[in-house]
Protein backbone atom coordinates (compact mmCIF):
# COMPACT_ATOMS: atom_id res chain seq x y z
CA UNK A 1 0.00 0.00 0.00
CA UNK A 2 1.23 3.40 -0.93
CA UNK A 3 0.87 6.54 1.16
CA UNK A 4 -1.81 8.93 0.07
CA UNK A 5 -0.41 12.28 -1.00
CA UNK A 6 -3.59 14.14 -1.91
CA UNK A 7 -7.11 13.54 -0.68
CA UNK A 8 -10.03 15.53 -1.97
CA UNK A 9 -13.11 14.84 0.06
CA UNK A 10 -16.60 15.97 -0.96
CA UNK A 11 -15.32 19.11 -2.59
CA UNK A 12 -17.75 21.54 -4.19
CA UNK A 13 -16.48 24.81 -5.57
CA UNK A 14 -17.27 27.53 -8.04
CA UNK A 15 -17.20 31.21 -8.73
CA UNK A 16 -19.32 33.60 -6.72
CA UNK A 17 -22.35 33.15 -8.94
CA UNK A 18 -21.74 29.76 -10.51
CA UNK A 19 -21.12 26.32 -8.97
CA UNK A 20 -18.62 24.42 -11.14
CA UNK A 21 -17.37 21.40 -9.18
CA UNK A 22 -19.77 19.09 -7.39
CA UNK A 23 -18.91 16.70 -4.56
CA UNK A 24 -15.49 15.68 -5.85
CA UNK A 25 -13.72 12.73 -4.25
CA UNK A 26 -10.18 12.01 -5.38
CA UNK A 27 -7.20 10.24 -3.89
CA UNK A 28 -3.71 10.34 -5.30
CA UNK A 29 -1.16 7.95 -3.88
CA UNK A 30 2.43 9.03 -3.55
CA UNK A 31 4.34 8.44 -6.79
CA UNK A 32 1.24 7.57 -8.78
CA UNK A 33 0.21 8.91 -12.17
CA UNK A 34 -3.45 9.82 -12.58
CA UNK A 35 -5.16 11.04 -15.72
CA UNK A 36 -8.13 13.38 -15.73
CA UNK A 37 -10.21 13.53 -18.88
CA UNK A 38 -13.49 15.12 -19.80
CA UNK A 39 -15.17 17.26 -22.42
CA UNK A 40 -14.39 20.94 -22.85
CA UNK A 41 -15.81 23.03 -20.04
CA UNK A 42 -16.22 20.02 -17.72
CA UNK A 43 -14.26 21.67 -14.90
CA UNK A 44 -10.86 20.00 -15.19
CA UNK A 45 -8.84 23.22 -15.13
CA UNK A 46 -11.04 24.52 -12.36
CA UNK A 47 -10.18 21.46 -10.26
CA UNK A 48 -6.48 22.06 -10.94
CA UNK A 49 -6.81 25.70 -9.92
CA UNK A 50 -8.79 24.86 -6.80
CA UNK A 51 -6.10 22.39 -5.73
CA UNK A 52 -3.56 25.16 -6.33
CA UNK A 53 -5.60 27.62 -4.24
CA UNK A 54 -6.82 30.06 -6.90
CA UNK A 55 -8.88 32.62 -4.96
CA UNK A 56 -11.22 33.23 -7.89
CA UNK A 57 -12.95 30.01 -6.86
CA UNK A 58 -14.70 29.51 -3.56
CA UNK A 59 -14.81 26.15 -1.88
CA UNK A 60 -18.38 25.74 -0.65
CA UNK A 61 -17.93 22.35 0.97
CA UNK A 62 -15.41 19.56 1.43
CA UNK A 63 -11.70 19.60 2.04
CA UNK A 64 -8.31 19.10 0.47
CA UNK A 65 -5.62 17.26 2.39
CA UNK A 66 -2.06 17.28 1.13
CA UNK A 67 0.81 15.37 2.67
CA UNK A 68 -1.19 14.86 5.84
CA UNK A 69 -2.22 18.50 6.31
CA UNK A 70 -5.52 20.21 5.56
CA UNK A 71 -4.67 22.84 2.97
CA UNK A 72 -8.22 23.90 2.08
CA UNK A 73 -7.65 27.39 3.45
CA UNK A 74 -4.02 27.91 2.48
CA UNK A 75 -3.02 30.53 -0.06
CA UNK A 76 -1.38 29.46 -3.30
CA UNK A 77 2.16 30.35 -2.26
CA UNK A 78 1.92 28.14 0.83
CA UNK A 79 0.65 25.27 -1.29
CA UNK A 80 3.47 25.77 -3.73
CA UNK A 81 6.05 25.74 -0.96
CA UNK A 82 4.39 22.62 0.45
CA UNK A 83 5.07 20.89 -2.86
CA UNK A 84 2.16 21.41 -5.26
CA UNK A 85 2.80 22.58 -8.79
CA UNK A 86 0.29 23.47 -11.46
CA UNK A 87 1.47 23.69 -15.03
CA UNK A 88 -0.90 26.23 -16.51
CA UNK A 89 -3.06 25.56 -19.51
CA UNK A 90 -2.42 29.21 -20.40
CA UNK A 91 0.74 30.49 -18.66
CA UNK A 92 0.65 34.20 -17.80
CA UNK A 93 3.00 36.80 -19.33
CA UNK A 94 4.90 38.93 -16.80
CA UNK A 95 6.59 41.90 -18.51
CA UNK A 96 9.99 43.09 -17.34
CA UNK A 97 10.77 40.01 -15.24
CA UNK A 98 13.63 38.08 -16.84
CA UNK A 99 12.97 34.34 -16.89
CA UNK A 100 16.33 33.48 -15.39
CA UNK A 101 16.06 35.75 -12.38
CA UNK A 102 12.49 34.55 -11.86
CA UNK A 103 13.69 30.93 -11.78
CA UNK A 104 16.46 31.89 -9.37
CA UNK A 105 13.99 33.67 -7.09
CA UNK A 106 11.50 30.82 -6.90
CA UNK A 107 14.26 28.31 -6.16
CA UNK A 108 16.08 30.42 -3.57
CA UNK A 109 12.90 30.79 -1.50
CA UNK A 110 12.90 27.02 -0.88
CA UNK A 111 15.43 25.89 1.69
CA UNK A 112 15.77 22.49 0.02
CA UNK A 113 16.68 24.04 -3.33
CA UNK A 114 18.95 26.86 -2.20
CA UNK A 115 22.23 26.63 -4.00
CA UNK A 116 25.15 28.64 -5.32
CA UNK A 117 24.75 30.81 -8.37
CA UNK A 118 27.10 28.58 -10.32
CA UNK A 119 25.42 25.29 -9.51
CA UNK A 120 22.09 26.87 -10.29
CA UNK A 121 23.28 28.08 -13.66
CA UNK A 122 24.53 24.61 -14.50
CA UNK A 123 21.29 23.00 -13.46
CA UNK A 124 19.21 25.40 -15.54
CA UNK A 125 21.55 24.84 -18.47
CA UNK A 126 21.09 21.09 -18.24
CA UNK A 127 17.32 21.29 -18.14
CA UNK A 128 17.23 23.72 -21.05
CA UNK A 129 19.30 21.33 -23.06
CA UNK A 130 17.03 18.46 -22.12
CA UNK A 131 13.99 20.49 -23.20
CA UNK A 132 15.75 21.77 -26.31
CA UNK A 133 15.08 25.30 -25.13
CA UNK A 134 17.68 27.81 -26.28
CA UNK A 135 19.61 29.71 -23.58
CA UNK A 136 18.45 32.94 -25.11
CA UNK A 137 15.01 32.41 -23.57
CA UNK A 138 16.52 32.81 -20.13
CA UNK A 139 17.19 36.49 -20.70
CA UNK A 140 13.74 37.17 -22.07
CA UNK A 141 10.83 38.45 -20.06
CA UNK A 142 8.80 35.70 -18.43
CA UNK A 143 6.49 34.21 -21.08
CA UNK A 144 6.27 37.53 -22.91
CA UNK A 145 5.85 36.85 -26.60
CA UNK A 146 6.66 33.15 -26.16
CA UNK A 147 4.83 30.85 -28.55
CA UNK A 148 2.29 28.45 -27.10
CA UNK A 149 4.76 25.56 -27.25
CA UNK A 150 7.57 27.65 -25.73
CA UNK A 151 5.37 28.61 -22.82
CA UNK A 152 4.66 24.95 -22.13
CA UNK A 153 8.35 24.16 -22.19
CA UNK A 154 8.99 26.95 -19.70
CA UNK A 155 6.37 25.39 -17.43
CA UNK A 156 8.26 22.10 -17.73
CA UNK A 157 11.50 23.90 -16.94
CA UNK A 158 9.97 25.15 -13.70
CA UNK A 159 8.58 21.71 -12.90
CA UNK A 160 11.99 20.11 -13.32
CA UNK A 161 13.68 22.78 -11.22
CA UNK A 162 11.18 22.80 -8.38
CA UNK A 163 10.67 19.03 -8.20
CA UNK A 164 7.32 19.29 -6.44
CA UNK A 165 5.70 16.33 -4.71
CA UNK A 166 2.60 16.79 -6.84
CA UNK A 167 2.49 18.10 -10.38
CA UNK A 168 -0.80 18.93 -12.03
CA UNK A 169 -0.25 19.19 -15.76
CA UNK A 170 -3.13 21.06 -17.34
CA UNK A 171 -2.97 20.26 -21.04
CA UNK A 172 0.78 20.65 -21.04
CA UNK A 173 0.72 18.58 -24.23
CA UNK A 174 -1.72 20.69 -26.18
CA UNK A 175 -0.32 22.93 -28.87
CA UNK A 176 2.96 21.02 -29.06
CA UNK A 177 4.41 19.76 -32.33
CA UNK A 178 5.42 16.10 -32.59
CA UNK A 179 9.02 16.69 -31.57
CA UNK A 180 8.13 19.01 -28.73
CA UNK A 181 5.61 16.47 -27.51
CA UNK A 182 8.23 13.79 -27.20
CA UNK A 183 10.64 16.22 -25.53
CA UNK A 184 7.99 17.15 -22.98
CA UNK A 185 7.07 13.50 -22.44
CA UNK A 186 10.67 12.72 -21.69
CA UNK A 187 10.69 15.70 -19.32
CA UNK A 188 7.75 14.25 -17.44
CA UNK A 189 9.50 10.90 -17.23
CA UNK A 190 12.58 12.64 -15.91
CA UNK A 191 10.50 14.35 -13.24
CA UNK A 192 8.96 11.04 -12.21
CA UNK A 193 12.35 9.38 -12.07
CA UNK A 194 14.09 12.21 -10.21
CA UNK A 195 11.83 12.63 -7.25
CA UNK A 196 9.19 9.93 -7.47
CA UNK A 197 6.72 12.73 -8.12
CA UNK A 198 2.97 12.31 -8.21
CA UNK A 199 1.18 13.36 -11.38
CA UNK A 200 -2.31 14.49 -12.22
CA UNK A 201 -2.36 14.79 -15.99
CA UNK A 202 -5.22 16.68 -17.58
CA UNK A 203 -5.32 15.99 -21.28
CA UNK A 204 -7.39 15.42 -24.38
CA UNK A 205 -4.72 13.36 -26.11
CA UNK A 206 -3.67 9.80 -25.52
CA UNK A 207 -0.35 10.38 -27.17
CA UNK A 208 1.32 11.88 -24.12
CA UNK A 209 0.13 8.95 -22.05
CA UNK A 210 1.94 6.40 -24.20
CA UNK A 211 5.18 6.99 -22.39
CA UNK A 212 3.61 7.20 -18.93
CA UNK A 213 2.64 4.42 -16.58
CA UNK A 214 -0.90 5.41 -15.80
CA UNK A 215 -2.23 4.15 -12.48
CA UNK A 216 -5.75 5.57 -12.57
CA UNK A 217 -7.99 7.41 -15.02
CA UNK A 218 -10.80 9.76 -13.95
CA UNK A 219 -13.56 11.16 -16.08
CA UNK A 220 -15.17 14.50 -15.34
CA UNK A 221 -18.44 15.61 -16.87
CA UNK A 222 -20.19 18.87 -15.99
CA UNK A 223 -18.29 19.22 -12.74
CA UNK A 224 -18.82 15.66 -11.56
CA UNK A 225 -16.28 12.87 -11.41
CA UNK A 226 -18.39 10.24 -13.10
CA UNK A 227 -16.03 7.35 -13.69
CA UNK A 228 -12.73 5.96 -12.55
CA UNK A 229 -10.74 3.12 -14.01
CA UNK A 230 -7.33 1.87 -14.89
CA UNK A 231 -5.24 2.85 -17.89
CA UNK A 232 -7.57 1.03 -20.28
CA UNK A 233 -10.29 3.63 -19.68
CA UNK A 234 -8.17 6.08 -21.69
CA UNK A 235 -8.38 3.83 -24.74
CA UNK A 236 -12.10 3.46 -24.37
CA UNK A 237 -12.60 7.24 -24.27
CA UNK A 238 -10.31 7.64 -27.22
CA UNK A 239 -12.42 5.19 -29.18
CA UNK A 240 -15.94 6.24 -28.21
CA UNK A 241 -15.85 9.69 -26.58
CA UNK A 242 -17.72 10.95 -23.54
CA UNK A 243 -21.33 10.41 -24.58
CA UNK A 244 -21.70 7.28 -22.46
CA UNK A 245 -20.63 9.22 -19.35
CA UNK A 246 -22.86 12.15 -20.23
CA UNK A 247 -25.84 9.85 -20.52
CA UNK A 248 -25.07 8.10 -17.25
CA UNK A 249 -24.82 11.41 -15.45
CA UNK A 250 -28.10 12.59 -16.94
CA UNK A 251 -29.78 9.35 -15.89
CA UNK A 252 -28.58 9.88 -12.31
CA UNK A 253 -30.18 13.30 -12.45
CA UNK A 254 -26.88 15.09 -12.21
CA UNK A 255 -27.26 18.52 -13.69
CA UNK A 256 -24.65 21.21 -13.87
Amino acid sequence: MQDTLLTIDGLSAGTEDKPILHDIHLELGSGQTHVLMGPNGAGKSTLGHVIMGDPSYQVTSGSITFDGADITDLTSDKRSLAGIFLSYQAPVEVPGVPLYSFLRTICQMRPELKTTARKFRERVGQICEQLELSDSFLMRELNVGFSGGEKKKVEMLQLLLLQPKLAILDETDSGLDVDALSIVSRGIEAYRAQCDGTLLVITHNTRILERLDVDRTHVMVRGHLVAEGDASLVGEIDASGFSRFEDELAAKGGVA
Partner: peptide, 12 residues
Amino acid sequence: LYLMSRGCSEAE
Protein backbone atom coordinates in the same frame (compact mmCIF):
# COMPACT_ATOMS: atom_id res chain seq x y z
CA LEU B 1 -1.88 34.06 -8.82
CA TYR B 2 0.57 32.71 -11.37
CA LEU B 3 3.53 34.04 -9.37
CA MET B 4 2.03 32.87 -6.06
CA SER B 5 1.52 29.39 -7.51
CA ARG B 6 5.31 29.31 -7.87
CA GLY B 7 5.84 30.14 -4.22
CA CYS B 8 5.98 33.94 -4.12
CA SER B 9 3.98 35.58 -1.33
CA GLU B 10 1.44 38.14 -2.46
CA ALA B 11 3.79 40.96 -1.48
CA GLU B 12 6.69 39.37 -3.34
